[in-house]
Structure formats: C-alpha cells, structure tokens
Write a protein that binds this DNA or RNA. Structure first.
Length: 830
DNA sequence: GTAGGGTTAG
C-alpha cells in the first residue's frame, strides 16, 4: 500500500494542479429510459401484455406478427416494464431469436439491471457470456453499468473478467469511469489484490485518480480492517477536498465497529468544520450500534447531534434508545426521553409502552399516568390505562387490575380505594376498550378466578365493548378446564347468536375435550356432529383420551362404538386411538375382537406400527397363542417394520409360557445390540430368569443374572423377586435367601408371594428354625396378610407346620400372643 | 392460541 500512496502523492502534486483535468467525471453511463414514438409505445404495451398473459405461447401468431417491428429501443422499454425477472428473461430470450433483430448494449444492460435487482447470479453469469459471445460493442459507460450490476450481486471476479474480455475483443475501450465502476464492485469483496492491480493499471495508463477512484479503495481497506491504509487514503482524499457524506460514513461506521468511539466523535467534529455532516441513515446506524454495545452515553450524544442537525428521529430510534436505557437500569433517563418524544409530537405505540412497563416500577408507571396532559386523546388515555392494567397483571396484582378496570368503567362508585380513585382522572365508557377487558379477563383466568372473569365479561356491554373471539375462547377454555360445561356451552351459543362471531376449531375442541374427559360418549359424538358442519376436526388427543378412559373402566364396547361413530362422521381416528381400543379388548379377553379390529384397519389401508403389533403380540402370548403371535411377528418383518425390544420381550415371555425356553433364548440372541436400540433390557432378563427357573433350569437362570450384570443392566425388584421365587421353587432356598438379603440391602421390598415361596421351600426341607427366621424378617418389614389375601391360606399352612414342631412352636405362640400374626389366628391355631 | 395420546416382566 505504501508504494501506491507514494504514487498517489506524486500524481496529486504533479497533476492535480491542472484544474481542467480535475473536472468531475460526468460520463456516468447510467441507463436513461429511451424515448419511443407513440406507435412504438403501442407495440411495447402489446408485447408486455402478451408476455404477462397466461397461458403464454412464444410461438403465438400475435407475437410472430409483432416480431418484425422489434427495435432495441422497444426491447429496452419492454424490459423496464416487467415486474418479474422471469418474464423479462423469457422475453429477452425470445427477442434474441427473432430474425433481423440483435440486442445491443442497452438492452443487455436493461436485463442486467432486472436480474441483478432480483439477485439472479446464475442468470447474470449467462448474460455475461452472452455479452461477450455476441460481440456486442459497448460504450465505456455501458460497460461500467454492466459491471456495477455484477458488483451488486457480489460477482466480483466475473466483473473483473468482463472488463478484460470486452477490452481484448475490442468491444469497448474502457475509460476511467469503467474502471471506477469495477473498483466499486471489487470494494464489496475482500479481493484486495485485484483492486490494487487495477489501481496500478489505472496509474500506468496515466489516468488521474478522483474521489470515485479512491472511495472504493477506502471502502476496501475499511472492510478489511486495514485502518492504517484506510486512514492514509482518507487523508489524501481530505487533502484533495474529495471527502463527502459517503466517504465520511464509510470511515465512521468502520470506526464504530472497531469500538473506537472517541475517534468517531473526533472525526464527526472535524468534518463538521468542513461542513460535511452525517446523513440520517448513518446517524441511525451508529446510534443503533452504540446502543447494542451498551454505550448509551455515546448514543445519546449522537442522538442530540442528530436532532441539532435538523433530523427528526423516528419512533424506532427512540424505541431502541429507551429500551437500551431501561435494560441498563437508567429508568429516569428512559422516562425523560420518553416524555421528550411525546412532547415532540410522536405518539408512542403500544409496543414501546409495553416494553417500558417491563422495566418500570408501579410508581413510575403511575407517574406516567399522572403526567397525562389534560384534554389528551381518549385513545391515548386508554392505551396508558391498558398499560397499567398489563403491568398489574404481569406483577400478579390481578385484584388491583380488576378494581382499576371497574374504576375506569365507573361501575364501582362506592369503592374506598382513594389512591386508585385519584389515579383514574378520566372515567367512563370512552376510556376502556376491548383490549382492557382482554387483559384483565386473561389475568383472572390465569389466577383461576374463572367466575370473576365471566362476571367481568358480562359487564362489557355496559361500556359498549364488543367481545372478541379471543376473549370467548379464553373463557370457554377456562370453563371447560374447570368442568363448567354448561356455562361454556351458554357462552358458545351467545358467541354465535348474540355477538355474531364464528367459533374456531379451538372453541369447539375445548368443549369436545371436556365431554371426553367426562366420558360423555353421546355428548361427544353430538359435538362432533356440530363440528362436522363447521369442518372443524375433533382433536385426536381428546378422542384417544376418551377411549383410554372407557377402556380403563371396562367400557370397551362403548369405546369401539365411539371410534366407529367418529368414522361415520368422517373423522378417521389414527393408529394410536385404535391401539388403545385393541388393548382394551385384550384386557377384557376379547383377543379375537382385537384381531378383527386390527385386520379391519389393515383392510382400510392403515399400516399398523410397531406399537400396534406389540399390543397384539403380547395379548396373544399372554393367552398362550404363541404360534399366532409368531405369525404376526413374521408379518411385521415382511411389512418392513423393525421389532423393538418390547416385541422381543413379549415373544420371549410367550415362548417361556409354553415351556419352549430354547426359542426364548433364540429370541434373546436376535435382539439388536445397536446402541440406538439399546439391546436386551431388564425386562428381557427378568422374563428369561423367570422362564428358566420354571423350566427347571435354575443354573442357567443364575448365569443369566451374571450375564445381565455384565451387560451393565441393573436388576430391580421384579428381577430379584423372579430370582428368589425361582430358586425357591427349584428347591434351592439357601441361594434364594442370599438374593433376598441382597435385595433388602438395596432397599427394595419384596412382595409377599416371594416370602411364601421361600418359606414353603424351607419347610419342605424341614429347616424350621430358618423358616421361623425368615418369617420374623417378613413381619419386620410388613404385616401378616389379611384373611382375604390370596396368600393368607398358604402362610397359615406354614404356621401350622411351625406350631406343630417343638423347635418352633413356642416362638410362634409368642408371636401370636403379641398380635403379630393378626386377629384371625388366635383361636384357629391354638 | 394447539402435539401427545397407544406397547413388555410381578
């Protein structure tokens, strides 16, 4: 860079003295709309209308007739008239293929302007090639224009290449303007080498540089953050008196980006003395930037300068600064600025006010209200009132908001809240709006005060406020959520009949959902019939919820007919709702009906998912119809579904149930160990441990336990219980006991059947003392099962044996005497 | 302003 600066200096001193040669470069080459005769004007209109009409045929006879009259001036005019780049492109293409017609540099530039504005880089590239290949001669200005179009879409290398090609092919002798255009294009990129090369070329030509040459150079160095170079260029420009608003903006914006705040102000000051001032846009950008970096003093200083320069800031600028001040906790300054804005005649919008209310205290909000000038616009007063209402609601002071709103309405004449009374200077229907009600009603609903919300809603008419759909929906939703269905339905009726508003699907679904929660199948279907008229789809989550509730209560038939009714009304439930129903059927032992439903769905083109298959497979397995389950398993594989661990677990359980443990073990080996699917889980191992023990293979069960632990799978209480019960039943109570001890150590509490199995195993081995010990342990953690308990009898048999043996009989009698074995035993076992 | 609801071991 230093070398070039040196070269610039040389020129400036040697050549700039020549006033004539310092003249402003006036050949801008910009496109000027061609003037066309009135005949041609007609032609232009015709072509435009043909090309914008649909359907469009480029071989239409109309077009063929117009073609011979085509001139470049006409084409240029037509191109300037299209709003769509596509049509412009199409037309340009059509024109090029008409015999006797050839584009010139102006028509090409007209298209270039359109494409560049629409940021169509690919099409610009094609046009570049067309320009060169068509050997179209260009004036230096026209080439400059084209280059600027390329620059606008960031096609710097293409711009650079076009200049060379045009020059090499002799299509154009570029002048300084052309080069300046190129420099400008390059300055939008980071290709400083290209820029410096072109600059050198220009000096080699002996051209004197001007501000249009150096401004891009300044821009480039600023973009790259090479501030020393930028400063030098800036100095040179200053020496030549070439500085203007534009170059100042470039410099100042860069300095502010580099956080050189002092330098920014220094520069602005210096330029002011030269009578160069920032434009409004630059002021705005700088101020926004300062606020963003929390430099509020700088922002405010500049803001003052901006106003002194005669610019009237827009609300968005006030908005930014006020928000910045609020965030920094400088609320006093924010409020002052806000008042200043209001005095300057800018009406604050609710967005800004709501922002303010996020930061202000109640006192500050009230101050805002107190400063309302007399005779202020009623709408504005309402806006302020609503602001305070919002504030109260946000702060959780719902009652205060409620009282205030009633105060403004004037319906609370005997209120004793004097502070509130003095706050409300303006009272009456004019000062409340629908929004006021919306704010307070929503607040009341949030607090769960639905009745108050409805009460307030009913009073809206007094002050001539019309409720909105939103208010109705809010209320209806809240009423439905608190199961006040009748009131909700009343409101729905009123909404349509009195207020003339249409319920939305949300409105209807609130009520539908409530009916589903109430398990009111008939009501729900009636609602669906209403909804069908509005084409409002009943939400599936509500339908599924109803099906689930019914199934849980054994009302499966009702659930199924509800689903069928939905279909009847044209709303087909999804696989989830059907899965719930199928499970309901299975739980009531209606497996065949579940299968039937499943097959029906498939027949209607529904593809059941893994979960649906799982439900059926597990149902079949539980009913020991394992081979049918296996067929379903195969079917899901054929259908391209991947069985999940759940599927395998159910199959494993099934095989175990019918005593085919080996097939169960085969299943285990098939469970994917991919990280994603997680491999076998506790349920897998638990099922297998149980199955192996039942099959009389306790040793393998023990191995399985170890394998499980090796896989990092932690046993939990069901696993322990399976192991303890299994070992007991296999006649290995000693080992079972050690697992029981471990289980207790882990803080898990076994269910009673585990003790029963263990006690029975010990008894059958005549280990009476141990039996007694285990019984004592059992009683330590729980009480003796009641008479109606399914294990009562079994335990009683155990007791009977203990009582009969002399080693344990006295201990048992002691337990009975102490009441540890419950009231029923005292007489029977004596 | 509105997407989570259905599956396995005792």
């Amino acid at each position: 860079m230093r070398r070039y600066i040196h070269i610039f200096r040389l020129w400036f001193y040697e050549e700039c003295s020549d006033a004539l040669r310092l003249r402003r470069f006036i050949c801008t080459g910009d496109q000027v709309s061609p003037s066309v005769s009135s005949d041609s004007e007609q032609l232009v209109s015709n072509i435009v209308s043909i090309f914008t009409k649909k359907p469009f045929h480029r071989d239409s006879p109309e077009l063929r007739n117009l073609a011979p009259a085509l001139t470049t001036k006409v084409v240029e005019s037509v191109l300037n008239r299209f709003k769509s780049w596509k049509i412009a492109h199409e037309f340009f293409d059509w024109a090029s293929s008409q015999s006797g017609y050839m584009h010139n540099c102006y028509t090409i530039n007209a298209l270039a302007a359109v494409l560049s504005g629409a940021r169509r880089n690919a099409e610009m590239k094609t046009l570049s090639s067309y320009l060169v290949n068509s050997r179209c001669p260009m004036t230096p200005g026209a080439l400059g224009f084209f280059i600027r179009c390329l620059g606008n879409v960031g096609m710097v290398e293409e711009a650079d290449a076009v200049l060379n090609q045009a020059k090499d092919l002799g299509l154009c002798i570029p002048n300084k303007y052309t080069y300046n255009c190129l420099l400008q294009a390059i300055s939008r990129s980071d290709k400083v080498e290209i820029l410096e090369m072109r600059l050198k070329e220009m000096t080699d030509f002996g051209w004197e540089l001007d501000k249009f040459t150096l401004t891009p150079v300044l821009q480039m160095y600023c973009n790259l953050g090479r501030m020393k170079c930028a400063m030098r260029v800036f100095e040179i420009m200053g020496d030549q008196d070439w500085l203007d608003v534009h170059s100042l903006s470039i410099m100042v914006l860069r300095l502010s980006k580099l956080c050189l705040t002092d330098e920014v102000f220094e520069l602005i000051q210096k330029m002011e003395s030269r009578n160069i001032r920032l434009n409004e846009q630059t002021f705005c950008i700088l101020i926004h930037g300062f606020v963003k970096e929390s430099k509020l003093d700088a922002a405010l200083e500049l803001f003052d300068k901006m106003k002194r320069s005669g610019f009237t800031p827009e609300i968005s600028l006030y908005d930014t600064i006020i928000e910045g001040l609020c965030k920094k906790g400088q609320l006093k300054r924010a409020l002052d600025l806000y008042l200043e804005m209001r005095e300057s005649g800018i009406s604050p919008d609710s967005k800004l006010l709501i922002k303010l209310s996020d930061f202000f205290s109640e006192e500050q909000m009230i101050q805002l209200l107190e400063e309302l000038p007399e005779g202020m616009d009623t709408k504005m007063v309402t806006l302020y009132y609503n602001l305070l209402l919002t504030f109260y609601i946000k702060a959780g002071l719902t009652d205060k908001a409620h009282i205030m709103l009633r105060g403004i309405m004037g319906s609370d004449s005997n209120s004793h809240d004097t502070a509130m009374d003095s706050l409300i200077k303006f009272k009456g229907a004019d000062f409340v709006s629908t929004a006021s009600f919306n704010i307070v009603i929503s607040g009341l609903i949030q607090k769960g005060e639905v009745d108050s919300a409805v009460g307030l809603f009913l009073d809206m008419g007094q002050v001539h406020c019309r409720p909105t759909v939103e208010i109705y929906n809010n209320l209806i939703e809240a009423l439905c959520n608190s199961n006040k269905l009748d009131v909700a339905k009343d409101l729905l009726r009123e909404m349509e009949a009195t207020s003339g508003l249409s319920p939305t699907q949300f409105t209807h679904n609130c009520i539908f959902g409530c009916l589903c929660r109430r398990e009111d199948t008939i009501g729900a279907i009636d609602m669906v019939k209403v909804m069908r008229v509005y084409a409002h789809e009943p939400w599936i989550k509500h339908s599924s919820d109803l099906v689930k509730r019914l199934c849980n209560k054994g009302r499966v038939t009702e659930a199924c007919s509800f689903l069928a009714d939905l279909v009847e009304e044209g709303f087909v439930p999804d696989i989830v709702a059907y899965s719930t129903a199928m499970r309901g059927l299975i739980q009531t032992h209606k497996i065949d009906q579940a299968m039937e439903l499943f097959r029906d769905l498939q027949a209607q083109g529904c593809r059941p998912d893994v979960v649906a298959y799982n439900i059926l497979i597990s149902g079949l397995c539980k009913a020991k119809r394992v081979s049918e389950a296996d067929k379903l398993f195969e079917e899901m594989l054929e259908g391209g579904l991947f069985p999940s661990v759940v599927t395998y677990n159910s199959m494993i359980d099934g095989w175990c149930q019918i005593g085919d443990v080996d097939r169960a073990l085969l299943c285990l080996s098939k469970i994917s160990r991919k990280a994603q699917e997680g491999g076998p889980d506790v349920i897998t191992y638990t099922t297998l441990i149980d199955g192996l023990c039942i099959a009389g293979r306790p040793d393998e069960a023990l191995t399985m336990w170890d394998e499980m632990k090796r896989q990092g799978c932690v046993p939990h209480s069901i696993t322990f219980m399976a192991m303890i019960k299994g070992l007991s039943k296999s006649g290995r109570p000693e080992e079972a006991r050690s697992y029981l001890k471990e289980m207790l150590r882990e803080g898990m509490k076994p269910q009673i059947y585990v003790y029963v199995a263990l006690l029975e195993a010990l008894i059958s081995e005549q280990k009476l003392e141990e039996t007694f010990q285990v019984l004592r342990e059992m009683l330590e953690i729980g009480s003796f099962p009641e008479l109606k308990d399914k294990w009562h009898v079994a335990l009683r048999d155990v007791l009977a044996k203990l009582v009969q043996d002399e080693r344990t009989s006295s201990s048992i009698r002691a337990l009975v005497a102490e009441g540890h074995l419950g009231p029923h035993l005292s007489d029977t076992d004596r």
